[in-house]
Design a protein around this nucleic acid. Structure first.
Lengths: 206, 206, 206, 206
DNA sequence: TATGAATGAGCATTCATTCAT
DNA sequence: CATGAATGAATGCTCATTCAT
């Protein structure tokens, strides 16, 4: 009787776990290959094989390749969000906030090399084909817009900007500068210093 | 006999002219289709047909599709360069220089809708697959870096920046802000005003 | 202990009953889906799900999809047989027999819309691929052959026919005329009248 | 000069011939395989290989497999039409007309074994998936309807039938009887005799 | 120089079936 | 007896590129 109950529990637990198990294998394999090879050069078949599973299993979890990639992008966005939220503390002045944000992004990039670049480079192309809503960069631009709006309300940022535009500009500046730093192997400290100073000067009141 | 000679002369003349002729037809068709449909959705066959030529003719002028696209990107870059060079006059102060540059870009975009976006969006993907040298954005970043370097030398820009980094940041800011303005149908004047003020404040000495 | 015994009895009873239970669920679901979607567009998985059972259960009752479809066809044939047997009474003259038979078929089609068409259309394809014995139409042709043979023996049908051939011809005439009536929404009475007259004239002695 | 003209003519002729050449190879191969294996078991790849051509060539001539099959069916219909038109001569009485028609069909079947069966069996399934208009059998039913209508007008067929219904019935009777004859290797003469007598009795006036 | 018929590697996706639980 | 996650062979189709003319 007891063993029966245990078996049942086990069975249920295993049953409940098995699907997520293969899902997470697929997820991990997809992430690895998308980052290594890019969207186009990664076939669903490769992902499944990398995960040690049959081709068909891929389609148990995603309706198509696109959906899998979009899920990968969304996951990356959420992971970065955690880094960002941890970095931004109440009471930071503008410079501190910018520095903390930059460091959060660079920490994430160190921890997950290539993920952000892949998510952003290919996502724009994927989205273009469809109608998938706001691209990743634009969303980050919007978030920066909100940060600036709050900072304006607190009086720590000059109030003469259209925050929507400036939010996008900041996101673009960060992105492109970071890309180039990666390309040219520049040190991250110089990057953070320069960008911080740049933004602080541009934004400070008066 | 005479008519034969004339025909031969004609034929030679035409032959000499024809290659450039068919090349420019191909170029124009490629540009049109790349902008309308994007890189992936445009087949060499489509380009040749749009140009009113046989499929094989495409490969008389370009070794492959990639090369054709890269040539399109390069052409766009050079066209924009002309606009930019005309805008930047000696004796401009920093604000004037920035405003003039922005206006040159927007003028180009008005004159050649979609070209810049296509050149930049798809180029990144094409490059990613290969190793095609410096992406378009990075090159613009470098050019901005040089502009800033000169401005620093003239004393109109504060000298505490790493110009390579800041050049990239400026290019990124411009790009992303412009993209978003296009997406949200914002007016170009607000965009130019905001970005100009932003950059002037960030860059002015002291 | 008692309750255990009772449970065991219950369980056995249920076990004995359950197989037929789940079989009839599968049968019903298969019939519904084959009629609605056709053979090719119906997956064993769909059938099991429609039956409220797991995918694997399907294969507890049928070795494969084909066998399931063939069972559906056979069931339809037997159901129609009941209608036909009830319609044919001893002492009918030829005209009465034909009319009664036609009405039985049309009653069956009204009671089970689509079943006959599905059974016959797809069965031919299934059979074609394999060697599954006599197709449905041919069996009906044989039955008509026997009816005619009996009628010849009774002297109500002219004896100069090869009954095997004429049986098939009758079955084909009925089938095709009925199909077209369904397609063109013709009334069933006109159909029955015309076919009956046609057959009676063709078959009557002298 | 002359030789030049000849060359041009040759070149044009060859150019004009080349496409049809591969098309007719594909057509022939498709016909062979559809008849031998049926629609489902025949892949475009098999057709191209059977024709001694690459896979892609198939899609130069047909947008998809379905279209190829439908073209095969249409071709068969037209071929049979020629046989039928040759068989039906003005001045035939009803019995002659029916016999001639039957013989035309059987001649066609002898000359092109399996073609009609394949065209009709699989066409119904293909059409079912789409909306491809009137199935082959129904069209023949209509044609028989017209033959009967004319015969009624000439007074050689009794005028109490709905010719649309009877036309379909005749087509069905012919088809099914012929199918069964093929299955049971019955001789064609018995078939023609029986069906002719059957139809003549059913249709003759009074 | 120009052509366009021919090519075939390559891809995303489906689905009947199995088997460990 | 029941389950449903896993499988992978198989399919229809595309498209960049070649080459005989």
């Amino acid at each position: 009787m007891d063993s029966g109950a245990v078996n049942t529990v086990d069975a249920n637990a295993r049953r409940a776990r098995r699907k997520p198990e293969s899902l997470s294998k697929i997820k991990g394999a997809a992430r690895k290959l998308f980052v290594e090879r890019g969207y186009d050069a990664t076939r669903p078949q490769d992902i499944a094989r990398e995960a040690g599973l049959g081709h068909g299993t891929f389609y148990l979890h995603y309706p198509d390749k696109r959906a899998c990639f979009l899920a990968f992008v969304e996951e990356a966005r959420q992971e970065l969000d955690i880094y960002l939220r941890q970095a931004r503390q109440p009471g930071q002045d503008l410079e501190q906030a910018i520095t903390a944000t930059l460091n959060a992004i660079y920490d994430y990039c160190d921890a997950h090399p290539g993920v952000l670049r892949t998510a952003m480079t290919d996502a724009s192309v994927i989205d273009a084909g469809g109608h998938a809503g706001v691209p990743l960069m634009a969303r980050w631009g919007e978030e920066w817009g909100e940060i600036i709006r709050d900072a304006v309300a607190s009086g720590v940022v000059c109030d003469s900007y259209n925050v929507a535009i400036i939010g996008q500009a900041i996101a673009g500046a960060l992105h492109q500068a970071a890309l180039e730093c990666a390309r040219s192997q520049q040190c991250r400290k110089a990057l953070a210093d320069n960008i911080t100073r740049f933004l602080v000067r541009a934004l400070r009141p008066d």
